[in-house]
């Protein structure tokens, strides 16, 4: 039971990080990242490859993965950042597909479809194998706490209000002499850093990564978390991510109880439910179940 809980909790933490990243980009910043899974995959692969191919210390590899994913996020967002936000969605999606193709076919660098195995976790030398999962979950939870605190600070800071103001009306922010471009660039890069972290933790947790683990479904789940939690609300997304993973993980057991239900059918049913729920929530409860902090005073921050 305890190992199972730890395993589920690890998934929850990683998934929550992805949800928080999207909440920063889309929820607060209005930047639709349909290619979320690609940045997550990038983080996982950079981290995994640095450890396995070049024998870097896992923590150093993770740091480099975070920085690189952030930098690449910024570059990708630059492609369409001057245009209306709709374009970013397809640009990020296209980028993610390209990353997946590149990783699948460039074996010389990425091991291709074979995947990267033997990714050692941080502190692997310090703890015995039987405590490894526990050490991992402590690391993951600490990382989540740090991210959560940083995001809360950002959200309450003048920059956070600028982000929300940019989301709601970029023209006004622009006319007040603030650079919409810089605000978007920074928020997208910060979100990318969190995705790089989530990807690295994914690589550490499983110890083995291959291209089939990274699909648009990850993106769908992250959107689900943000829509349920309430766009812009960090506590809401945190709670939503927990609930969602437990529901989704819990639904695995249905296979044992419902006759005639196999894994593939269940997977399809689950995604039909996710897609439908996403649509229904956007229609009937567009603000989600959490609450964004009020932006009434945004104007006063813009001026100083």
């Amino acid at each position: 039971m305890i190992p199972y809980l730890i395993a589920t909790l690890s998934v929850v933490v990683i998934f929550t990080l992805a949800g928080l990243a999207l909440n920063l980009q889309w929820g607060m910043g209005g930047l639709v990242n349909f290619g979320l899974f690609g940045f997550y995959m990038l983080g996982a692969y950079i981290c995994g490859l640095l450890v396995v191919r070049w024998g870097l210390n896992p923590l150093v590899a993770m740091t480099l993965a975070i920085l690189t994913t952030a930098a690449i996020s910024a570059l990708v967002s630059l492609i369409s950042i001057r245009l209306s936000e709709d374009y970013l969605a397809i640009v990020t999606l296209g980028f993610a597909e390209c990353i997946r193709l590149f990783i699948s076919y460039e074996d010389w660098l990425t091991f291709g479809t074979l995947g990267v195995s033997g990714i050692t976790r941080p502190f692997a030398g310090l703890v015995s194998a039987q405590w490894s999962d526990l050490a991992f979950i402590i690391l993951a939870i600490s990382a989540l706490c740090v991210v959560y605190v940083v995001l809360s600070l950002v959200s309450a800071s003048p920059f956070g209000r600028l982000m929300r103001a940019t989301r709601d009306d970029p023209d006004i922010v622009g006319s007040l002499g603030r650079s919409v471009l810089t605000i978007r660039l920074r928020s997208f890069a910060l979100g990318g850093a969190i995705l790089g972290l989530a990807g690295s933790l994914h690589a550490f947790y499983y110890g083995y990564i291959d291209p089939t683990q990274f699909t648009p479904i990850i993106t769908a789940y992250a959107f689900m978390a943000v829509v349920v939690g309430g766009r812009g609300s960090n506590p809401g997304v945190l709670l939503a991510a927990f609930v969602l993973v437990f529901v989704l993980e819990g639904s695995r057991f249905l296979v044992d109880y419902v006759p005639g239900l196999d894994g593939a059918t269940l997977a399809s049913l689950r995604l039909i439910a996710v897609g439908t729920a996403l649509v229904v929530l956007l229609i009937i409860k567009p603000a989600g179940f959490g609450r964004e902090r009020p932006t009434v005073r945004a104007g006063s921050d813009l001026k100083n």
């Binding site: 709709d86 479904i217 769908a220 959107f223 897609g275 439908t276 729920a277 956007l282």
Partner: peptide, 15 residues
């Protein structure tokens, strides 16, 4: 348009 965009992703996944 952004909200509709996300809704259309939900439609796509379901279909």
């Amino acid at each position: 348009g952004l909200t509709l965009l996300v809704a259309s992703m939900g439609v796509a996944i379901a279909l």
